[in-house]
Amino acid sequence: MEPDDNIQQYQYLASKWLDKTITEEELQAFDSWYNSDLQKEVELSSSFAASEEQLEGRILEKIIQKIDRSREVVLWPRIAIAMSFLIFLSIAFFMFQHRDAAQDQDIATSVDNRILSGRTGATLTLADGRRISLEAERTGELAFENGIRITKTADGQLQYEVENNQQLGKGVNILSTSIGETYMVTLPDKSKVWLNAASSIEFETGFNDPEVRLVKLKGEAYFEVSKNGKRPFIVSSDKQQVVVLGTHFNINAYPDQPYAETTLAEGSVKVTDLATKSFKILKPSEQSRVSKSVIDVKTVNVDEMLAWKNGEFALGSQNFETILRNIERWYNVQFDYTGIPINDITLDGWISRSSELADVLHKIEKGTNIRFKIRGRRIIISR
């Protein structure tokens, strides 16, 4: 039986054990006492008690149930020590569980509990200045201008069709997506374009230049260009120009990043640096990056580079800062990592872009040592 004057000593060691300041020698003494035939097994779960007071009461009840009535007087000092320790330990456990629940709540229940994914939507600006919201507009014909019929299909895509025997006039259309929007369009030459969030393309409605088919791009888009050996298809952006005859490729040319990337899925493309006029010819699975008057080319996983077009985030495809920007554009949020080093963070895995933001952040947390807290549309990162 332990002397009464040792009770405070063991409580003191329990306190040091909980806040991780206990020494190795103290830990051995504490373990020796705690494991010495106390019959003190107590099972706890996150739902064991709603408050510290209720938790203490339940622990006391469990201890009393374990008392051997025939040894009640003899064992009471030891039981008092065990009870004191278990209450101390269980309160700490309760607080630990509550802390984890609070961390989950930071991610899952802020911003009116949910931040949903982006959606299919865009705005079409016609040659006469009219603006049409493609998310809200009904299906069917939207406009007829310069010999071109513009319709929205039942599956939510924009389609340009040249009317037979019509004289094509000149006029420029702009298709643009906001943050959290994506859209697909079939151009007058039957080429298809998928626009990522916060992007736009500008083009003549009839593609009536006899020499070229010209599209101006801001942001990111995937192109499936119909073949026409006599009229090359040109995509022009701030830093580069891409020329093709008929092929599939992706261009990432957001104005807020210091480079433009072109990823080739099939065929070949010519990428020209507008600053130096130097160029590279890409082969399938190659990616060029135009930055600081230099064109770098490397081999990449095309499926990862095109994940956004197929409704996925490929978390291991780009550096962490780029992944954060992609998430910002899709969920209309802003990450705050001022003073937090993130260059060493690497990710892996895939997650659907239809997931709620909380699910994406949880997946990133599981694979890294960073934590997120949602404050309105602001996401605070800590390590």
Rank of each mutant, 00 (worst) to 15 (best):
L315V: 01
R329E: 08
A102D: 12
D104M: 12
L124D: 08
N35K: 15
I63T: 06
F93P: 00
S268D: 00
N301Q: 10
A92H: 14
L361K: 02
S355W: 03
E26N: 08
K309D: 07
N369S: 13
Y337I: 07
S15D: 12
Q257K: 12
A197P: 05
G339N: 07
Q157G: 01
I323N: 02
A122G: 02
Q97T: 12
R149C: 11
R71L: 15
A358P: 00
A101R: 12
N326K: 10
I345K: 02
L282W: 09
A143I: 01
A108T: 13
A221M: 07
D344W: 02
E145D: 11
K230W: 02
S51H: 03
N301T: 06
N310G: 09
V244N: 01
R71F: 07
L44W: 03
R377T: 11
V235N: 07
A260M: 04
W194Q: 06
F93A: 13
L75F: 06
H362W: 00
N326F: 00
D100W: 05
H248M: 09
L175C: 08
E321T: 11
K309Y: 04
T322C: 01
L124Q: 04
V74N: 08
I179Q: 10
M95S: 14
G246P: 05
L158D: 05
H362S: 11
K192G: 00
N319L: 01
W33V: 07
F320L: 03
D189L: 10
I87Q: 12
L75R: 09
V290G: 04
I351E: 04
V294P: 00
K277F: 08
A29Q: 12
S51I: 09
A49D: 03
R377Q: 13
N208K: 11
R213S: 03
Y259A: 12
T338F: 05
Q287N: 08
G219N: 08
A253D: 04
T272F: 03
A102M: 14
W194C: 05
N173M: 11
L27H: 04
D112V: 09
K298M: 10
T368G: 06
N310W: 01
F279Y: 13
L315D: 04
N301H: 03
I132Q: 05
L142N: 09
L124A: 11
G57N: 15
Q103P: 00
A102G: 02
E220P: 04
D37Q: 13
D5S: 14
W330G: 10
A101C: 00
K62T: 10
P77N: 15
E135N: 08
S70Q: 12
I59E: 09
V212R: 14
D112C: 03
A136K: 15
I234K: 15
S36H: 11
A127T: 09
I379K: 09
K298I: 11
L187H: 07
Q318Y: 07
F279I: 01
K363G: 00
